Simulated scan of single mutants.
Amino acid sequence: MTDPRPDDAAIPLDLVDLSSPTEERNPASAELDSLDARGMVDVILGEDATVAGAVQEQAGPISELVEVCVGAIAAGRTVHYLGAGTSGRLAVLDAVELAPTFNADESMVAAHLAGGAGAFLTAVEGAEDDAEAGAALVHEVCVAGDVVIGLAASGRTPFVRGALQAARAAGMPTALISANPRAELAGDADIPILLDVGPEVVTGSTRMKAGTAQKLTLNALSTAMMVRLGTTYGNLMIDVRPTNAKLVGRTVRILVQASGASAEEAGRVLQAAGGSVRVALVALLSGADVDRAAAALADYPRDPRRAGDPAGIRSAVAALAKQP
C-alpha cells in the first residue's frame, strides 16, 4: 500500500497530541482484531449502548438551543448546520429528512458540508481545514437573526471554527455539537453541546459513537423544534408530504388514530379537504364540514407561543364547539 500523502506534504505534528477522547485508545476493544464476529459485535454494541446516556446528560443545552431555533424560524429566519466529514453528512441527513416528515424546507433548516454537496459521497481533501471557507459560507448564506450550529466531533475543525467566529462577529446565535468535552471551539459557541462518549471502538473513527451521539442530538433538536412550531397533533404528523403511496396511506391512518373515525370516513373527509390533513382532522374532531373547519383553522394558525396547542388544532375544535 502506498503512502496517500504527497512526498512534500508536512506532517501536522501539532495534532499528534490532540486533546479529544475520540483519539484515545479504548481498552474495551484493545484486542478487537483477535475476536470472532460475535465477540466484535458484542464489543461494538456494548460501547454503543453508552451513547444515549451521554446525550441525555446534555438535555439542558439541547433544550435551550431548541427554543433559540424555534424563535428564529418563527421570525422567518433560518437554522444553519455546518460541518465536515461524518458530522457534516449527519447534518445534511437530518435537514433533508425534515421535508417529508414536517413539510420543512431550506428556509427553515439548511445544512452545509465542507467541500460542497459533492463531499457527501466523496471526501474533499483539506476542506475541513479551511477556516476561511467556513467564514465565507456564513457571509454568503446567512443573514441577521439566523442561527449557526457547528458540528465537529473533535471540537476543533477549522472549517467550523471559521463559521462560528464569523457568525458571532455578525451577532448571530451560535451553537456547537461536539463529542469532545474539552472542545476548543466551545468558546466560539453561545450554546456548546459537549457529548462525553469516550474513546471509539476503532480509535479515532468518529463515524461510530461520536456520530451516533451527534445523530441522536440532531434527532432530539430538530424534532422538538418542529413540534414546537406546530407540525404535529400530539405525536402524529399533520404536515407530512404524501409524496408516495406509503405516505398517502399514512395520512389516512393518522386521521383514524387521531379521531377514531373509520378509514373510509377519514379518506372521504381528507379528499373533501383537498388533501389537507389539518383541515380534515379539525372536521373529523369537531363534526363540522371542511369549509367551517378551514375557517376555524385560519383563526388559529401555527404558533409556538400558544402553550399546549402550537398547531392550533385543539383551539380550532374548541372554537367550533362554541358555534351554534
Rank of each mutant, 00 (worst) to 15 (best):
G53L: 12
G118S: 05
M1Q: 10
D17W: 08
L18H: 06
G145T: 04
P27T: 12
P310F: 00
D289I: 08
A117H: 06
V248Y: 00
T217Q: 09
K209C: 05
V269P: 03
A127L: 09
N235D: 15
Q165C: 11
K322L: 14
A295Q: 13
V79E: 01
R241K: 15
R25D: 10
T206V: 15
T206H: 07
Q214A: 05
I73A: 07
A37S: 14
K215D: 06
E200C: 08
V92I: 15
V201Y: 10
A95W: 01
V201C: 10
T232Y: 03
G234Q: 10
S286V: 07
P173A: 11
G260Y: 06
P301E: 10
A166I: 05
R228L: 02
E140F: 02
S315D: 08
R253S: 12
M237R: 03
D17M: 05
E64Y: 00
V138Y: 02
C69F: 03
G171V: 09
S154F: 03
E140N: 12
D3N: 15
A9S: 12
L45F: 14
A52W: 02
S315P: 12
L93M: 15
F120Y: 13
A110P: 01
V143L: 02
M237Y: 05
A263K: 12
G312A: 13
L137C: 04
T251P: 00
V277H: 05
V148L: 11
D42A: 15
G308D: 10
V277E: 08
C69N: 01
R314G: 04
R38S: 13
S34G: 15
V79Y: 04
R253D: 05
V141M: 11
G308K: 10
L121M: 12
G76I: 08
R168Q: 14
L137S: 07
L90A: 01
L151H: 01
A127R: 00
G46E: 10
A263C: 04
S87P: 04
G116I: 12
L320H: 08
S276T: 11
T217R: 02
A311V: 05
A153I: 02
A135M: 13
R156M: 09
L93T: 14
L320N: 09
V68Y: 08
A54N: 08
A294Q: 13
Q56R: 15
A119V: 12
I73F: 08
T243I: 14
A186H: 03
A114C: 13
L35H: 12
L35Q: 14
E128H: 13
A136K: 14
L82W: 00
S63V: 08
R5Q: 07
P181I: 04
R278M: 02
T157C: 05
R228W: 01
A95S: 14
A135R: 10
G145F: 09
V41R: 11
M237G: 03
R38E: 14
L93F: 13
